[in-house]
Each structure stands twice: as structure tokens, then as C-alpha cells.
Nucleic acid binder design. Structure first.
Length: 797
DNA sequence: GCCTTGAAGTTACCG
DNA sequence: ACCGGTAACTTCAAGGCG
């Protein structure tokens, strides 16, 4: 066994355990030569800070703290250190403890002591503390001086090392050859949503990055061997990343409950342990990254109902029309009937292939995000945007010697946001859309907006030393650069640098792809900083910061509009950081220059519409692009809570209007759909309306249709979780709309459907939203004969 | 008691 | 558990009418 050496590894997961009263950090990684290793560091200790009150000397407080712990279990060390708190130099007492569990104990003990202003950074998990303090990068490479340790037979790794000093992150853009395992389970469900205490798992489908596909099946209705096979498969394949779809909310909890009931040890981790519920609602599998791809699907706003097959279809991984689809509620029938089982096998296989395919599309971004914000791969997806931003900020704070503010409960405090212009309604030709690039981040940088540069009105002396926000009057010191300014400048520079580097690579290359995902991750975090600052749950929350940012934003866009008008550009519309103007190449170029000159902000032409149509409403329009594509914004056609048939009709109407300029052709088309509806020729799937259940049933104050439908679904034995979408149909009969809403899975007879509702409340309103502006009324759409319209008057096409 | 009206509740969008 | 601005739907209760 070699004595010491240097190991280069890619960080996959981090965990810790107290062994013999010593906390032990475990870094699970993959080496440059593709070995799975764990690096152990027993030298790190948990700590937190005690901030003295203004009038109390740190030395004096240190004495008091020492007196307080006298006779109790001692802390490891207490010392005075210099840090910054909201930019101001402070002396704080760093309290280092023996084990992580001591931190909350001493925090409580010290917090209420006389002379203590606050206790800081006592709520940072031990392994996160380690990652931050050594600036480790999850999904990034490190070098570490190590001494090999004897292998622990409980750990599924090729080698165990003791770190002789903390690992150092290194620049190295290669990806390790990761073993990725996609899995999906099917459960027996004759009574609606399956219950682990009652219903067996019948199939577990698996796919690996080597292309191996495998179906593990139950012995009819006995799944005990199936579960054991699954554990054995995971152990022998030994994946680095395990991906599933909705696995944190369904597959893992189900498998865990089921194993418990059947007495199977679900020891799938690299430390021989079971998946354990952890932060942000994810399941932690020690030594591996357990990634739920659903978390990333949530950011794909184009997909309205985020089922596995819809996401796979959207990403081009597994076209919906070329795969086996089984209605979830009918799975048990395919199991019961031996002749149908092979269809179910096919279905399960396609599910896991879809999952694997989505993983290929999503993981590169997930890894870049993890690396940027410093959360492990399995946590980064589960963490909300606010927490992703916050971890990034905490890393930066550490680098800058800034103390991390505590999270405190605050009441919600509203403030004014952006401006939306009243659109000039109707059809316009040749319209350019100009956008400010990263408007809020750039405003925060140029005005130095930050909690630590904010100065309350009574302390404002010489106004020339401050940037004063319009409308709201908040003042921010011009110097020195505040926390947000430093962080955002770094992020924007980083992104510029990445984009520069991308030019050196072939867009088809792996390097290019990695860099592109990296710049995307940087952009996402930079753009979320403003919203984060205005979030009452944020550690670096400051209402005035968010409020001043939007105030300068409003001023900027208003002045920009004036400038456009001065240059003779007609402004059609604008929202927050964009303006729509007539596209006159020369004038637009001049205008871009003038904006740069005036605000030191970049405004870029985003696109030019050949034709664009506005209703009188804000945030709803439709544009025809030079390549013939159609952009629909805000209208029913892009909303998930309208029936597919209504959306389809509106989209086609828009296309006819924008491409052919013929309202009458559109009318004919709408009539044909109305006829088809009445004739029952429209598939029921196009009539389903999808709406989210956003809270518990008791919390609803009105009898809304989707809630009534959801209750009916639950009554029929289905489980529904908050945040889930319910698909319902409107059925013929008396009473309120809500009375007529039934979950589609419970509607057996198409005759029950209230087609008149779909005509009057779905298709016609969606069509008329557009056609009304061409003088078309609902009567015209419903009756058969042509009448003169305003459009004819105006001599339209 | 019936109908109209407007506020309130609700969702999902835009940037 | 990132923000505010916005449209549009349905429900519900108040008010007017008779």
C-alpha cells in the first residue's frame, strides 16, 4: 500500500458522521482514472460566531462566554476574529465545537446572554460548512494529498483515503465516465392510487449509461424477490447517479415503505444504507447522486402538464405518438391479464428509456448549476431558486470575509414593480423588439444597490455621495462596492468570459455544450438575484433594495420610450425591460447607440416581427416571425388551463390572420370546429381542462370547478398532492359549472359531455379574443351566413 | 324570489 | 419558499326590482 500521494477526483456527494466522538467528513468522488473513492477528513470542526453588542468589547464578552461554559462540556476553542457584517468591519467570537450536535446547544446557551447581539452561521450544515470553507465544487475536480486507509467492507468504493490537507478545487474540464442508472417503478393499482401497505410493486425498469435495459418483475403479486433483485442490481452496477422521474415524491417513498413492510433492506447507498429523507424534500443516497428529473421539468414552462411522456416528447427523447401509452389507472388490468403483460413491459421499458433520455438532456445543466452554487448534485435540483441563489451568495460571502445574516421571519411587505405599456391594439407590420440585457442586475451594479450600501434617510448627508432612487427616494452609497454589486459583477463577467471561450469550440463539441450549460447556470442565478433580494425569506432580504431596483427600472424604460419617440420611432408596446418599435434599421441603430450613451445599459434587438397582433390587453399578443413561425404570448393558446381544442382553434385563427390576413377564412374554420364538436368528432382528450390544486381542500373559499373535480377523484380512491394538476371535463346537467366538473378518468360515456359548454365557453371565447378586432361576433361564428364587418369597411384583405 | 353587478377568489401567464 | 403586474374566468353576496 503506497504511503502518501495526491488524488484527483470529481466530487459527487458529501456526507458526515461522528465516529469516536470525532466528526468525519466524507467526500464521495470519481477519480481521473475512473475509480470510485471516498476521501475522509477528520480534522474539520463545526463552529459559529457570536456577535457582541455595539457597546460591548469582544474581550469582555469572550470572558463572559468562558464563564458561562465553565463546568459544562467545554467547547474546543473560542477566539476573537475579524469579519465584516453588512460591509462593516466587526470583531466576533468564533466558537468552535467538538461535534455538530454541540452547535445548536451552544447557540441557544449564548444567544440570550447579556452583551450578545446575535449568534451567526450556527444553522449551516456541517458538510456544507466544509464545502464552503474549502470552496469545494460539487461536480467539479479537486486534488488532495492523501494517505490510503484500509478498505471498509461496508463501503462500496474502490479506495478509501484520509485527507492530509483539505482538497483544492482545480480547473479541469473533463467529465468523468459516470455510471448513470435510470429507474422507474410500476405498481399494482386496482383501487386507484397504489398504496405501499397494500399494493405490490410489479415492475422496476432500469437503464444504464452502458445501454443495458432491464425489467425486474414481481412474481405475480409477490414483490419480495423483486425488491431484493433491485437492491442487488444497484449494488452490482454501482451507479454514481440514479435518476428517476418524480422519484423523490413517488418511487423512493414507495420503495421504502414497501421494503419496510416486506422486511427487505433497501441498502442501495455506497455506505450500505437506505435512502433517507433529506433537505428540500429529496432522498439522500450516501455516495451517489439521487436526481429527480421532475425538478428540472418544472422550469420547462412550455410543457403544461408535466408527465414523463410529455416531457420526453417535448425534449424529442421519445415521441408520444410512437410509444405505448397506458392510462395510469389501468396498469393493474395489464398485469392481471397475461396477454396484456407484454404491452405493460413495453410501456415500462419506454418509461425508463424516456427517463434516461431526459437525464441526458438535463444532467449537464444540473451539474453546472451544482458546481456554480455549491450544492451537491442531488440537492441542487430539489432546492428552490431562492435557496440556489442563497448558497451561491454564502460561498461568496465566505470568500469576502462577510458574515452570513440569519434567516429571520418577516411579514410580507409589498412594493411597486415594473411598468407595462398599454399596447396599440390591432395588427402592426415590421416591428422590432428591443430588450435590455440583464436590466435588473445591471441596475443593481451601476447604482450599487445592496443592503450594506443602503443608508436610511436620516443619515443621508452630502447627496452627491449617494445614488438616490427615483420615486421611492432610497439612498445607496456610491462607494465602496456593495455585496450585490460585487457578486453580480462577478457573475456577469464570468458569463462574458464563458461566452468568449465558447467561440474557440465547435458548437457540436462536448466542450461547447458544457460551457453553454455553464453560462446558462450563471445567467439563471444572476437574473434571480433581484427577486431574491425582495423575498422576505431571504438572508440578504432588503425591501428597499428590491424597491429601488424596480424604481430605477421604471425610470429607465420610461426614458427609453421618450428617447425612441424623439428619434422618430413609434412605440407599439413595452413590458419591464423591452420595447416594441417600428423597425427602421437606421433609426433603430441610432436608438441603440443613444440608449447606451444615456444609461450605460445595452439594449439589443431580440427579434423583428413581420406582423404582430395586439388585443387591447397587456401581456397578450401574437407575432409572425420572418421564418414563418408564430410567437403566441400570454393568450389562451399558451395557457395550460384551457381545453386543447380551444387552444388549437385560437392558434390556427392567429395563423390565418397573420399569414393570410383573412378573418373570413378563420370564421369558416371556427365554424367547422363548432360543427365537429356538435357531431362528437373531437377527441375527448382535447376537451380536458387542466388546473393545479394549489392548497388543501379546506383552504378554498369558493366552490371552484377543479376543486370539486379533485374531491370527486379523491373520493374514487385516488391520491392527490398539493401542486398536482387535475384534468376534468364539463358534463351536461343543471347547476353551477363546478357541479358539472368531473375528473376525466371517471367519465365513461362521451354522451355525458356538455359540448355546448366547450363551444360557448372555450372555443368561441378563444377565437373571438382575436376575431372580435375584425368585427366578428359570436353570432357570426355560430350562424351560417356572412355579414358585413368593420374589417370589410376598412378594406381589409 | 329573481336578476344584475361588482368584488373576491383563483389560476396562470409575462418579464 | 425569488419578485410584481396582469388578464380572465367563476363564485358569491349585495342591491334593485317587484
Amino acid at each position: 500500500m503506497p504511503s502518501t500521494g495526491t488524488v484527483r477526483f470529481w466530487l459527487l456527494d458529501a456526507s458526515y458522521e461522528v465516529v469516536g466522538k470525532i466528526p468525519e467528513i466524507r467526500l464521495w468522488g470519481v477519480t481521473d482514472d475512473d475509480l470510485r473513492i471516498v476521501v475522509i477528513d477528520r480534522s474539520f470542526r463545526p463552529y459559529f460566531y457570536v456577535l457582541p453588542q455595539d457597546d460591548v468589547s469582544p474581550q469582555e464578552l469572550l470572558k463572559r462566554l468562558n464563564a458561562e461554559i465553565h463546568g459544562k462540556r467545554p467547547v474546543l476553542n473560542m477566539e476573537i476574529v475579524e469579519k465584516k457584517y453588512f460591509g462593516k468591519p466587526v470583531k466576533v467570537i468564533k466558537v468552535t465545537c467538538l461535534i455538530p450536535a454541540d452547535v445548536p446547544k451552544y447557540r441557544e446557551l449564548f444567544r440570550t446572554l447579556k452583551g450578545v447581539e446575535d449568534v451567526l452561521e450556527a444553522d449551516v450544515r456541517f458538510y456544507m460548512r466544509y464545502i464552503i470553507d474549502h470552496q469545494l465544487r460539487p461536480c467539479g475536480w479537486h486534488e488532495v494529498k492523501v494517505r490510503p486507509l484500509p478498505k471498509n467492507k461496508n463501503w462500496h468504493v474502490d479506495a478509501v483515503y484520509e485527507a492530509l490537507e483539505p482538497p483544492k478545487p482545480i480547473e479541469y474540464d473533463r467529465l468523468p465516465r459516470l455510471r448513470i442508472l435510470a429507474f422507474d417503478i410500476e405498481c399494482y393499482n386496482p383501487k386507484g392510487t397504489p398504496k405501499p401497505e397494500r399494493d405490490p410493486v410489479i415492475i422496476i425498469s432500469l437503464m444504464t449509461s452502458e445501454g443495458e435495459k432491464k425489467l425486474l418483475t414481481a412474481n405475480d403479486y409477490n414483490d419480495i424477490l423483486l425488491l431484493r433483485e433491485f437492491v442487488d442490481f444497484v449494488k452490482s452496477y454501482d451507479p454514481d447517479v440514479i435518476i428517476g422521474y418524480n422519484s423523490n415524491r413517488f418511487d423512493w417513498p414507495y420503495l421504502i415503505e414497501r421494503s419496510k413492510k416486506l422486511g427487505v433492506r433497501l441498502a442501495v447507498s455506497r455506505a450500505n444504507s437506505s435512502p433517507a429523507p433529506s433537505v428540500y424534500g429529496h432522498y439522500s443516497i450516501v455516495g451517489r447522486a439521487n436526481v429527480d428529473l421532475y425538478d428540472f421539468a418544472e422550469d420547462m414552462y412550455e410543457i403544461k402538464v408535466k408527465t414523463l411522456e410529455n416531457v420526453a416528447d417535448y425534449l424529442g427523447v421519445m415521441p408520444k405518438d410512437k410509444r405505448v401509452l397506458i392510462d395510469g389507472i389501468e396498469i393493474y388490468k395489464y398485469w392481471d391479464d397475461p396477454n396484456l403483460r407484454k404491452t405493460l413491459f413495453e410501456y415500462a421499458l419506454q418509461d425508463v428509456m424516456s427517463t434516461y433520455g431526459i437525464g441526458e438532456k438535463v444532467l449537464p445543466f444540473a451539474m453546472q448549476l451544482a458546481s456554480l452554487v455549491g450544492l451537491t448534485l442531488d440537492q441542487v435540483g430539489a432546492a428552490s431558486v431562492g435557496f440556489r441563489v442563497e448558497w451561491y451568495l454564502m460561498r461568496e460571502a465566505y470568500l469576502q470575509g462577510e458574515l452570513v445574516p440569519n434567516r429571520i421571519e418577516r411579514p410580507y411587505a409589498p412594493y411597486k414593480g415594473a411598468i407595462v405599456l398599454e399596447p396599440k391594439k390591432g395588427v402592426h407590420e415590421n416591428i422590432a423588439v428591443l430588450d435590455f440585457s440583464s436590466m435588473y442586475p445591471n441596475i443593481m451594479i451601476s447604482k450599487n444597490i445592496s443592503p450594506d450600501t443602503y443608508v436610511p434617510p436620516e443619515e443621508v448627508d452630502d447627496p452627491s455621495k449617494y445614488n438616490i432612487a427615483p420615486e421611492v427616494g432610497h439612498a445607496f452609497r456610491k462607494e465602496p462596492p456593495g455585496f450585490y454589486k460585487r457578486v453580480l459583477s462577478k457573475l456577469l463577467n464570468f458569463r462574458r468570459q464563458i461566452k468568449e471561450e465558447m467561440k474557440r469550440y465547435d458548437p457540436q463539441s462536448v466542450e461547447y455544450r458544457i460551457l453553454d450549460e455553464r453560462q446558462r447556470a450563471v445567467k439563471v442565478i444572476a437574473n434571480a438575484c433581484y427577486g431574491y433580494a425582495g423575498w422576505v425569506g431571504a438572508r440578504w432580504y432588503k425591501r428597499e433594495v428590491a424597491e429601488a431596483t424596480t424604481a430605477w427600472g421604471r425610470e429607465t424604460i420610461k426614458e427609453t420610450i421618450k428617447l425612441a419617440k424623439v428619434l422618430g420611432l413609434k412605440v407599439i408596446y413595452g413590458d419591464t425591460d423591452s420595447i416594441f418599435v417600428e423597425y427602421d434599421k437606421e433609426k433603430v441603430e441610432k436608438f441603440i447607440e443613444a440608449v447606451k450613451e444615456r444609461f450605460n445599459l445595452e439594449i439589443k434587438p431580440d427579434k423583428v416581427y413581420v406582423r404582430v397582433f395586439f388585443t387591447e390587453a397587456k401581456k397578450r399578443y401574437c407575432g409572425l416571425l420572418p421564418d414563418g413561425r408564430i410567437d403566441v404570448v400570454g393568450l389562451e393558446a399558451v395557457r395550460g388551463d384551457w381545453a386543447e381544442i380551444a387552444k388549437e382553434v385560437q392558434e390556427r385563427v392567429l395563423e390565418i390572420i397573420l399569414k393570410e390576413g383573412s378573418p373570413w377564412k378563420a370564421v369558416e374554420y371556427v365554424r367547422s370546429i363548432v360543427d365537429a364538436l356538435r357531431a362528437g368528432k373531437v377527441p375527448i382528450s382535447k376537451l380536458i381542462i387542466w388546473k393545479s390544486i394549489t392548497k388543501g381542500f379546506e383552504e378554498y373559499e369558493v366552490r371552484a370547478a377543479h376543486v370539486v373535480a379533485a374531491k370527486r377523484l379523491v373520493k374514487a380512491g385516488y391520491k392527490l398532492e398539493i401542486g398536482e394538476k387535475i384534468g376534468y371535463l364539463i358534463i351536461k346537467g343543471p347547476g353551477k359549472l363546478a357541479d358539472k366538473a368531473w375528473p376525466y378518468v371517471l367519465v365513461k360515456d362521451p354522451e355525458q359531455i356538455d359540448y355546448e359548454y366547450y363551444i360557448e365557453r372555450q372555443v368561441l371565447p378563444a377565437a373571438l379574443r382575436v376575431l372580435r378586432y375584425f368585427g366578428i361576433s359570436d353570432n357570426i361564428l355560430l350562424s351560417g351566413h356572412k355579414q358585413a364587418t368593420l374589417f370589410d369597411f376598412l378594406g381589409g384583405a
